[in-house]
Nucleic acid binder design. Structure first.
Length: 473
RNA sequence: GGCCCCGUCGUCUAGCGGUUAGGACGUCAGGUUUUCAUCCUGAAUAUCGCGGGUUCGAGUCCCGCCGGGGUCACCA
């Protein structure tokens, strides 16, 4: 296997925006391909025209672009095995479908919807009873000639087991009689997933098929098709699911978000990648910040966990805060773009960022923590008094002292401020907490801010004085 | 229900017959921060789902059970 060329694919259906679980599989696809110097391909599986959601294909591109999963072949850039959209490959599927019928690996089925329904009414878990499998080819031909609608079903072996080695699940063995004769071609001439995926993966020379464990049970159908067609099957890797905090399967119905939504919420793509990587994979203590390149280097398809993993937002928060702390101000500033008002001064934002980035968990945390630097807060006298613990008269006197000290400072920096105001506080009769917390509330309107003197420096001498005056006038 | 997969701290996991079962996130406490967060230090948290075996010795191997998940569409 080491010498076979690795090609993986992400093959979403455009029935909505893929959620984080699907994207995690795409990440693994990318990592596997790149680890072996192979190609990562995007194929759109739009064989279900009824559930098509306009705009989802664009979202799929956005997800890849956001995370840096660079595609080597896709519907837009093309590639040697296009087209990469299944709805544009219908003739190919039809050709192989009739081939399959010709070699007796598939057969036409004329059963009505009503008949199929009645089968399920008798037993909700009923498989197709293979009624049309018993038809002679003459009978079938006659019905087709008479214009009866029909589908094509795969003619699975009725006994025995299908055995294969799954890259993450290990040796798997499923009894053939557990699968029923799945429909591979619909009445309207469009293939189902089972046919299309096999043909495309083969034609596109996909070496490794990474997909969710929900596909495990139908793998015998796919393997049967490969064998019937005389094709070498790819290596399968069924990766575990992502579960919600309540241990239920993450799904769009349960409000599972897409990676795009997490990005909107202020999570950096670097952190999202990292987080997804650690869900179902282990490297050192699972808390190191890893770049995509590093992940490519350390990824090992044999070490993918077999357990379903629970999506834990706290870990994402941690990773995100670490990436934010690590990022240079200039870079972080660029990311802040859509999270701050357009009229905020860039240089001032950067100054504040230096102070605030240590306490941010997401990009959304910046604006609320910075807005009082741009807009003078409405501060009630009482809230200042609550912090000062002294009478209004004494508090006014303390503020006057502070103002005169500040006025005399020519080099307005936090060290000087600290030294001078500490001296003033020492003889003020105010405790340090009373003295400085009252000032903090007076200039910011809140009791929690970055270090007081740093805040004053960013506000500037004039604005600081102005805000102190406003509270005692 | 049949079939299949999975089962180590709340969470992600290390562990590949002999360990005081380790780390990280989270939690709690202390220190730093004249606030909070960050940061630093420390602590608690798992009788390895349960019950039987095999073995001198089992989280690690075997069997059964239980629990969770998946699947059984002209959806992917």
């Amino acid at each position: 296997m080491a010498d076979t060329h690795v090609r993986t694919r992400n093959a979403p259906s455009p029935t909505g925006v893929p959620h984080v679980g699907n994207t995690r599989t795409a990440l693994f696809d990318y990592l596997l391909a790149k680890k072996y110097g192979g190609e990562f391909i995007l194929r759109i599986e739009d064989t279900d025209q009824d559930r098509f959601v306009p705009g989802s294909i664009e979202k799929i591109y956005q997800i890849h672009d956001l995370l840096g999963l660079v595609r080597d072949e896709d519907p837009v850039v093309g590639g040697p095995f296009g087209p990469y959209i299944q709805s544009q490959r219908l003739e190919i599927y039809q050709k192989y479908a009739s081939l399959l019928v010709g070699i007796d690996a598939a057969y036409p089925c004329f059963c009505s919807e009503e008949r199929l329904k009645s089968l399920h009414e008798k037993d909700q878990f009923a498989k197709y009873d293979r009624f049309c499998r018993k038809l002679t080819s003459e009978e079938a031909q006659r019905k087709i000639a008479a214009g009866e609608p029909y589908v094509l079903r795969v003619k699975l072996p009725e006994t025995g087991f299908t055995i294969w080695h799954d890259l993450v699940q290990g040796k798997l063995s499923l009894p053939n009689n557990e699968c029923d004769d799945k429909v591979i071609m619909k009445t309207i001439g469009i293939p189902t997933y089972h046919l299309a995926v096999v043909i495309d993966d083969h034609l596109m020379k996909i070496s490794h098929v990474l997909r969710g464990v929900e596909w495990m049970a139908s793998t015998p159908v796919h393997l049967f098709l490969y064998e019937a067609l005389g094709w070498q099957p790819p290596t399968f890797a069924h990766v575990p699911l992502l579960l919600g905090p309540d241990k239920s399967k993450l799904s769009k119905r349960h409000g599972a978000k897409s990676v795009l939504e997490y990005a909107e919420d202020g999570y950096l793509p670097e952190a999202i990648n990292n987080f997804l990587f650690y869900l179902g994979f282990s490297y050192k203590d699972n808390s190191e910040m890893l770049t995509l390149d590093k992940m490519v280097e350390i990824f090992d398809e044999k070490k993918i966990q077999r357990q379903n993993a629970i999506f834990d937002i706290q870990r994402l928060n941690y990773l995100n805060s670490q990436w934010i702390k690590k990022m240079p101000i200039e870079d972080l500033f660029l990311r802040l773009n859509t999270y701050i008002p357009a009229d905020w001064n860039d240089e001032k934002v950067k100054q504040i960022l230096a102070l605030v980035k240590e306490r941010m968990f997401t990009l959304r945390d910046f604006a609320p923590a910075a807005e009082y630097f741009f807009t003078a807060p409405v501060v009630s006298v009482q809230s200042v008094l609550d912090q000062s613990g002294h009478s209004e008269k004494e508090t006014v006197s303390w503020f006057e002292t502070v103002k005169s000290v500040i006025k005399d400072i020519s080099d307005f920096n936090s060290t000087v401020l600290h030294d001078e105001l500490a001296k003033a506080q020492a003889i003020s009769g105010f405790s340090p907490k009373e003295a400085f917390m009252s000032l903090r509330v007076a200039i910011s309107g809140r009791s929690v801010t970055p270090p007081l003197f740093d805040c004053m420096v960013i506000l500037g001498k004039d604005e600081t004085l102005k805000r102190l005056s406003a509270i005692i006038s």
